[in-house]
Nucleic acid binder design. Sequence first.
DNA 1: CATTTGTTCAACCGATCTCTTGAATGGTGC
DNA 2: GCACCATTCAAGAGATCGGTTGAACAAATG
Lengths: 237, 237
Amino acid sequence: MVQENKAPAPEPSSQAKRALLEQFARVAKALAHPNRLELLEFLAQGERTVESLARAAGLSVANASQHLQQLKQAGLVASRRAGQHVRYRLADDDVVALMAALREVARRHLAEVDRIVEAYLAARDTLEPVPATDLLERIRRGEVTVLDVRPPEEYAAGHLPGAVNIPLEELERRLGELPRDREVVAYCRGPYCVLAWEAAGRLRERGIPARRLEGGLPEWRLAGLPVEVEKEGAGQG
Amino acid sequence: MVQENKAPAPEPSSQAKRALLEQFARVAKALAHPNRLELLEFLAQGERTVESLARAAGLSVANASQHLQQLKQAGLVASRRAGQHVRYRLADDDVVALMAALREVARRHLAEVDRIVEAYLAARDTLEPVPATDLLERIRRGEVTVLDVRPPEEYAAGHLPGAVNIPLEELERRLGELPRDREVVAYCRGPYCVLAWEAAGRLRERGIPARRLEGGLPEWRLAGLPVEVEKEGAGQG
DNA sequence: CATTTGTTCAACCGATCTCTTGAATGGTGC
DNA sequence: GCACCATTCAAGAGATCGGTTGAACAAATG
């Protein structure tokens, strides 16, 4: 039934409401493309140049640059010039929290996510992951070997206390570096980063007790847990 | 230096990675339009029909229905038929958390948000809002009058313990209902809902001590604080 | 100052999104 | 079983987005 009354109370500053909603939508829009989400995941590991990000994400440099600028305009990332390069970084840890909330909603309400995890990730490692706080306790007791399977560049930008860095592709070759009397806990970029699943699976196939950390380095850092950083040659805080 | 090596390790299941990122982007895409964000804000107050939502958001019914279906496919809302109507609701409180994270990032990193708040909202009430836990304490001590300025429909779907419901447009007329010996704390739909700012401002202009609650009903509920619900005539859990 | 290297800009096309309009669907209640 | 009603579907116009290409720009190097 057509209600012939005037517009339903065009509130005083519905103008403000609209303007605010547009700002929030702007942030969401920046998150609304898989390539940008992947760039954010890389940036959550630490500062990187455009070129490095483009290579990691399999994008052309121009394309990566465009996406990064969208992220920047949405306030999700920041950049600075360092020598010849422009280095991008997450604007803040609250961006990590936002991505976590996004993943959580998707995980809980999209059956497709479960399906993908079952089909691709659970095939490599079915064990439950180790919660971060449990791991910290066991690190302090020296009961565990922490294995960082990310590329050295990301390891250098920050890693778990005492973590050993063996990128996945070198794992078989460098098995000797892992003590055999302690459980290994592997981690990488985040809760769905395949590297850690794969590493845990491969290690257990070889009889080495191994599990994944629940979440990756960004989530660990977000929880306020301690992170070690290699001192950088050109770094300046 | 141009690295002429082959593609940078096209990881085993970058397929899975891609598929997951697309799912996360799907959720973000659903959030990436001001109209849908507004619908979500209404839904965060409680279950509503398509028609009611369309009217509240100033959309055509067909358009509102389309947006609601996008939200549904992204797992953000759910629906059920009730008599002749279809009633939509938030899928889960984690959606409230996601929206909170989105607003937080926008607030902290988009200068435009501050500008809008300053220009439109702070003009009505400049006092700092009351944190939810503080308010609960004062409610229990009976030290405060809690004022819900949302429409009765939203009040009925859930409100703060002991809250008085006076929609903003009736505020002047019904000032007598407010005890004059206690501070009034007004709230509405969320941290940027103008109703509470306006109400607090108008009350203080009349010499009644009044402030806003920090956040609205959805944030209060998300924090696990107690909510009162009117018993509904046709409700069935 | 000229060159090199890394990043950004600008223009373009195809794909996707948004809203409108008008018709179809499918429960409900009589 | 029938008519009604809220909701959904379908199609189309206009706008926005996404990726490519090639040129422009900026900082460092020699």
